[in-house]
Amino acid sequence: MAVAVAVIGKENSPLYVRTVNPSSELKFMYTIHASLDVVEEKVIVGKKSSGELRELYLGLLYPTEDYKVYGYVTNTRIKFIIIVESSYTTLRDNDIRQMFRKLHNAYSDVVCNPFYVPGDTICSKQFESSVKGILIQE
């Protein structure tokens, strides 16, 4: 399961960031920020190709020594980043897809709240509880 989950807005401002351990938030913020360039690149390459490469899930963005960073971009240009520990070798690609799917569903419910202003940071309780299901519980 994930150690960090982030939702990044259209103009690359963070709408939501949660880490399992709040003290590591700054470290992960750096990782997330660095991953955004890879995301953009992958989207541009993906658009030119046909078929499967145009899917919203971008796969592994890059591995670091301790973590693996995965990305996903919605058609509405919202970026999702999920970070998992590299030591979790049992985690399959399908599990990661599931996490993103869950996150995407939760995010689109947030947008559909008539009182949510798109681009604002997310403070929905519903969303919070969905993310909890994705993060590792310590």
Binding site: D109, P114, K125
Partner: peptide, 8 residues
């Protein structure tokens, strides 16, 4: 009607 609503 309230499926996605969280009141401000």
């Amino acid at each position: 009607l309230t499926e996605f609503v969280e009141l401000p």
